[in-house]
Amino acid sequence: MRKGWSKRRAALERAKERAIELLIAVCGVSAVVFVFAIIYFVFREAAPLLFGGLDFGQFFGSEEWYPDSNSNKRYGALALIAGTVSVTTLAMVIAVPFGLGTAIYVSEFSTGRVKETLKIVIELLAAIPSVVWGFIGLVALNPLIIDAFGAPVGLNVLNGAFLLGLMSVPIMVSIGEDALKAVPDTYREAAEAMGATKWQVTWRVLLPAARNGLLAAVLLGVGRAIGETMAVLMATGHAVHIPTSPLDSVRTMTATIAAELGETARGSDHYRILFVLGTVLFLITFLVNLTADLAIRGIKKR
């Protein structure tokens, strides 16, 4: 009788375990579900305009962004795209040498306490919220740029690029350092045994060997910069036009969504065009992340 009871209890236990394992599997695939949900819900709001009269030639070819105009609404996103491209490019000009340089310094030239401290500082750098960066751009960089360059306004491409540069450095350092760490020590030892200095080893051996990982580091930094919203919203100056100098004010795609979504009526074309911008942003960052992931996988396979 006791045996029958314990058998039933064992069956109950097994059923409970099955249920838990099912829940675990569901959570396991949840990330995939969420990504598809993001695509679906963003696309869903964009679709009526995307398939119902959006002039793609105008969208990608014109800088006339007049979504509110009563008589003649125009959705030329070229200036917004140019805004994103200009700020991101200049940010990378700043961030790539600093990011990779720091990754090399942390991985190859520093040890022990210094290394640990640096990694912590870089982690803290990554933790600073983007709205705080935007605030810094507004109150600190703005007057600095006006003073230094005699610009009429300090809220411009340079300001945003400087912030984005600092914001995308941490991910470059951490992924770049991982890539350098993944190069087997035997490479270093072999090269140093032949009398090469540390710098020569780094330049001739490590950088080529860690090429893919460093590429991934840069790409993830680019992805971060393209997607950043609050800092560029606050620091680049809200001017919808194609910049001709780093001291011009611009507006990025992300900042446009953040600035205008609150003022649109649900279902209006203006509302939908912002979701179209979102879809474009999603696709760009998806491709950037996919490429970075493939580059990283390349190293792991080897």
């Binding site: 990330a31 949900a37 993001i38 819900f41 997607g227 969504i257 960052t285 992340n289 970075a292």
Partner: peptide, 14 residues
Amino acid sequence: VNLAGVPSIVHALF
């Protein structure tokens, strides 16, 4: 990787 890489404003739209 993508969930981490999607811009925060796209998360907002979602």
